[in-house]
């Protein structure tokens, strides 16, 4: 014990702990008080559950709650399926590996604002490149970002495009760690490409699947930048998510309401992600 105290002093926790507590933990705690107040940053007045009532009564705010869930489910689900497919393709065809992987991965490191700007131009209903190409082959293209029912899905599509590379490289790492002789064993037993995928790749890349689901689901629930730069939550509030609602309420000076949004997002993320991590951890231990 004496030895521990000398070799690994607890004072090493202090610098990181101080920044983390003051900038992250304290504000998170404060949120649980100010969410119940009308707040100007200088003074606050306790109003009980009014902020939350307003959140669940106003159509615009309720819509943002639904959109957040839809967005998180669609983006994380697609990244799992397409990311795994691409990883299988890239690992099986050595000749392409480097080039294709680099092309797909590059958007991951490009700023979201630049991506959002570019796609909001490409997806313009009449002058955008996509609909012009569609028009050239005689198809009346969808109004990607201006259609009330479509906007959130169009942004989700770009989110998938941008995040796919990360999902893919996680799967590549997972697939590469599977011993080769397992595939040979299946081949010896007369199993073809599908059997190899179904009985080896799919079950043995499960840790990669858990990782991709977790990080993209958490990211999806918290997402703000792409939505804000592509639609600003519009048209109207059709593509608002909780994070963009928080920003709008903040801009309008409704600090209590914005903080209530933060608390709702906190509860939503915790309620969905904590059981998920528990379940994944149990599954991994059992294997």
């Amino acid at each position: 014990m004496q030895h521990l105290r000398k070799a690994y002093p607890r004072s090493f926790y202090v610098p990181a702990g101080l920044v983390y507590l003051v900038i992250f933990f304290v504000p998170t705690g404060l949120a649980f008080y100010y969410a119940f107040t009308r707040w100007t940053l200088f003074e606050s007045q306790w109003i009980g559950l009014d902020n939350f009532r307003q959140f669940f009564r106003e159509e615009a705010l309720l819509k943002s709650l639904r959109n957040t869930l839809v967005y998180a489910v669609i983006t994380s689900g697609s990244k799992v399926v397409i990311g795994m497919g691409l990883a299988v393709l890239v690992t099986s065809r050595i000749r392409l590996k480097g080039t294709v992987r680099a092309m797909i991965f590059f958007p991951v490191i490009v700023s979201t604002v630049a991506v959002g700007l570019t796609f909001s131009v490409l997806m313009h209903p009449t002058d955008g490149l996509y609909n012009r190409v569609l028009a050239a082959v005689g198809v009346d293209g969808p109004h990607w970002l201006t259609d009330v029912n479509l906007a959130i899905f169009s942004v989700a599509l770009v989110d998938i495009w941008k995040g796919l590379g990360l999902a893919m490289v996680i799967y590549i790492a997972g697939i590469m760690s599977i011993p080769r002789d397992l595939y040979e064993a299946v081949a010896v037993d007369g199993g073809g490409w599908w059997q190899q995928f179904r009985y080896i790749t799919l079950p043995l890349s499960q840790p990669a699947t858990f990782t991709v689901i977790l990080f993209s689901f958490v990211g999806g629930l918290r997402s703000f930048e792409l939505i804000w730069t592509m639609t600003g939550g519009g048209p109207g509030f059709a593509s608002d998510v909780i994070a963009s609602t928080i920003y709008k309420q903040y801009q309008a000076g409704f600090y209590g309401l914005a903080t209530a949004g933060n608390v709702i997002l906190f509860v939503l993320v915790t309620a969905l992600v904590v059981p998920m991590t528990r379940y994944f951890a149990r599954r991994e231990i059992r294997r």
């Binding site: 900038i23 504000p27 998170t28 949120a31 100010y34 914005a258 903080t259 933060n262 992600v273």
Partner: peptide, 20 residues
């Protein structure tokens, strides 16, 4: 606490208040 930091979205206005 570190796990919390990974999943919990930061509370925006209280952080501004703290910085102030």
């Amino acid at each position: 606490m570190i796990m919390m930091g990974l999943i919990i979205p930061p509370a925006v206005v209280p952080t501004i208040y703290t910085l102030q």
